Amino acid sequence: MQTHNSVQTANDCQAGRLIVLTGPSGVGKGTLVRSLLQRHPQLYLSISATTRSPRTGEIDGEHYYFVSRSDFEKMIAQDQLLEWAEFAGNCYGTPRLPIEQQIAQGKSILLEIELEGARQIRQSFPSALRIFILPPSFAELEKRLRDRRQDPDEAISRRLQRARIEVDAASEFDLQIVNDDFDTALQQLETAIFG
C-alpha cells in the first residue's frame, strides 16, 4: 500500500508546496523528517542560513548556508528570508529563493522549524501546509528529553516550560499530529502531505 502511495505522490507533487513541521524539543520532529525523506526522495529538505561557524563535518549548502552577520542583515533588509530568529548570539533563517525555485520545479519542501519561525511563515508564505507535532503527554516528553542524555536537568526544565507555551499554540496550525506511536504519526504525516 505504501509503495502505491509513493507512486501516486510523485505525480501529486507536481504543484509543489512548502510543508512546515513544528513542535517542542524532544517530540520527534527530526526523526519524522528523516523518515519522510528516506521514504519519499521527491521531498526536499529546506536548508537554513546561519551566522554561526560551521561545526566539524558540516558542509556549506548542505547542512546550512554559512553567511556573515552583515550578509544576513542584508538578507533581512532585502526580504530574502521567509523567517529568521536569533539564538545564542547567532542568526538563523530560511532563504526565500531556494524554496520558491524548488516549488516552481514542482517539488515539495519540508521545513522543520521552531514556533516563532512557523508564525513568521504564516505571514510570509501563507500557502504553506503547517503541521504541529504534539507529544502524547508532558510526562512522555520529559522522559524522551531525559533519555537523549544531552541536557542537564536545568536545560530540560527550560525545554519543558517552553514546550507548554508551544503546545498552547498548536491550534494555530493546519493540522496537529500526536507522536505517540511513531509509525502511526509517520503515516498521518504522509496522508497530510500526499493525500
Rank of each mutant, 00 (worst) to 15 (best):
G23K: 04
Q38R: 14
S46I: 01
S25G: 00
G26M: 03
G26L: 11
L32Q: 00
V33C: 09
Q42F: 15
G16I: 02
V33W: 03
P41W: 08
R39A: 11
S35V: 11
Q38E: 15
R39Y: 10
L21Y: 05
G30H: 01
G23T: 09
K29F: 05
R17M: 09
L36V: 08
P24I: 07
P41C: 07
R39P: 00
K29G: 00
L18F: 08
A15M: 10
L37Q: 08
A15P: 01
L21C: 00
Y44D: 12
L36D: 02
Q42N: 12
L45E: 15
R39G: 14
L36G: 03
V20E: 10
R17H: 11
S46A: 15
G16L: 02
G28R: 03
L21M: 01
T22S: 13
R39Q: 15
R34K: 15
I19H: 10
L32E: 06
G30R: 07
T31P: 01
L43C: 04
L45G: 10
S25P: 05
G23E: 04
Y44C: 14
I47T: 14
G16A: 07
K29W: 12
R34D: 15
K29M: 00
H40A: 11
V33F: 11
K29N: 04
G28D: 04
S35C: 11
K29P: 07
G23P: 04
R17P: 03
S46D: 10
R17A: 11
T31K: 12
T31R: 11
P24R: 01
S46K: 02
Y44E: 14
I47R: 02
L21W: 05
G28M: 02
G26Y: 06
L21Q: 08
S35P: 07
Y44F: 09
K29H: 07
R39F: 08
L43T: 01
P41Q: 13
L32M: 09
P24W: 03
G23L: 04
H40Q: 08
T31Y: 06
K29A: 08
L21N: 05
